[in-house]
């Protein structure tokens, strides 16, 4: 998957989790949680959804690497390159 495709996937997952999420004004470099006002339970859903779709196991220690949209893409790029 390309970086852009991965980015679209993450956005799609967030939109799916939160019907009110305003993705248009999102800054890729700023923490998702603050911008979207997500809590830890919502955050777990992003991880679970990636696992369901791509059988990705993301250990809890790696959660900080999913903080911003850009860091998500950086983290997922090597893991999803063959998808």
């Amino acid at each position: 998957m390309t970086r852009n495709e991965i980015k679209d996937i993450v956005i799609e997952i967030i939109e799916d989790i939160d019907e009110d999420a305003e993705m248009d004004s999102l800054d890729s470099e700023k923490p998702l949680r603050d911008q979207l006002d997500l809590d830890s339970m919502d955050f777990l859903d992003i991880v679970m959804e990636l696992r369901k779709r791509y059988k990705l196991q993301i250990p809890e220690a790696d959660y900080p690497q999913l903080a911003t949209l850009t860091s998500c893409v950086n983290y997922l790029e090597p893991k999803l390159q063959d998808v």
Binding site: I17, D18, D20, D37, D39, M41, D42, D45
Partner: peptide, 11 residues
């Protein structure tokens, strides 16, 4: 968003 009822619905 953070009210228990709405969190429950999102979950």
């Amino acid at each position: 968003k953070h009210a228990p009822l709405n969190r429950l619905f999102r979950q």
